[in-house]
Design a protein around this nucleic acid. Sequence first.
DNA 1: GTTGAGCGTT
Length: 452
Amino acid sequence: MSQYIHVAEEEGEEPMEVPSEDDGTLLLTTLSAQFPGACGLKYRNHETGTLRGIRLSDGRLYPPDTDWGRHLYIAVFPKGEKPPGTTSLGDSSLAIKSYKRFERQKCSDLIVLGLPWKSNEEDLRKYFQQFGELLMVQVKKDPKSGQSKGFGFVRFGEYESQVKCMSQRHMIDGRWCDVRIPNSKEGAQQMMNRKVFVGRCTEDMTAEDLRHYFSKFGEVVDVFIPKPFRAFAFVSFADPETAQTLCGEDHIIKGASVHISGAAPKASEKYDRRMVPNHGHMAYQGSWGPGRGGNPNSSSNMSVATGMGNNMGIGNLGLGALQLNHAMLAAAQAVLSSQTGWGPLGLTHQSAGATTNGDPLAAVTTTAAPHSMSASGGGSSYAPAAPMGGTGTAASNGSVVTPGAGATANNSFLGWGSQTTEMHPAPVPQHTVATSQIPNWSSVPKATSGWN
DNA sequence: GTTGAGCGTT
């Protein structure tokens, strides 16, 4: 049962409506798309006068009662920090720019899919500058004919712009277009520094145990425990800073001392294809789930296989620590090579359960009203990559309109059917799109971990 | 001059 939840950045400030999912939960990604950096929700309990926290699990916020009611919820930010200044994301202020979180979260190139053949780089720039400063705009073309291939790339100067841009679909020159993180090395790299390797795990540590333990340090977006038991795990955080802070530390979990280090193999400081076995087959392929973002692996291994229980003593005691570490490193490399961060290949290790989405980088699940752009007067095919104009705002672009305001809109975004210009008065909630875009994971080549 | 899921000559 989906509903709109009133959320404000602070008590007394203007609330914004954010939509819940059909199951009544609110995706953290939905929240963070509107409140970048937010890690939770709270509200004032008028019976006690105190603030009450909202339960967060697996990237989902759960309603305090049977539903969210009419409470005014307050976005919670890490360590009490919040972006100073503005409450809305409409303007990219310097204040927000200085907010730590945005310094850590780097922009990546974004692929724009579904462009009209006629759209050129100038068209793209005109449209996308409403989200913020653009550092790059490209329309991929056939070298000979100059004809557009129907997709392109953009890059924003500020992460805030990127998040905002990815939280919706886009009407560009009469077609609905999608903006996604490309399946590139860069994306995998960005994910890598959010993931830590947890060595010396014991078999009684479940994914839930690890998630619960590490949530003390920051939002955990994924826990991966290889099966069968291999005495290590991977924990991924929403904030790379959290992961990096933990690196090198020893922690006691369930009475055992685990060691935390970077998930990327130390042999290669920079993640490099040449270091990865089987790279020819699936390096980076599908590192980012097409269409919906999120993590196919997320919390899908809440139970740990116990088939190798009898071997535990051997692994922990019989072998020397160095050997074990080597074994763990080798296993970790094997797992990483087949996972490449967050690839669908992870599903070969564990069951494909419900996915969560705690990753603002891949936040495409929000339901913000799509913007649209009427066909602006055709310009030249090639727009020089360009004067980085000032930070554009929606208001500065007269050609930007919203469907709700009677602009050209259609319902063809329900599928990739005809992109007609049929008028449609009320846009359908966007989250209906996400489910229609869940890819067919089974089409992905199978990986070999090297340990099985 | 057609087409509509995808992933970038640098």
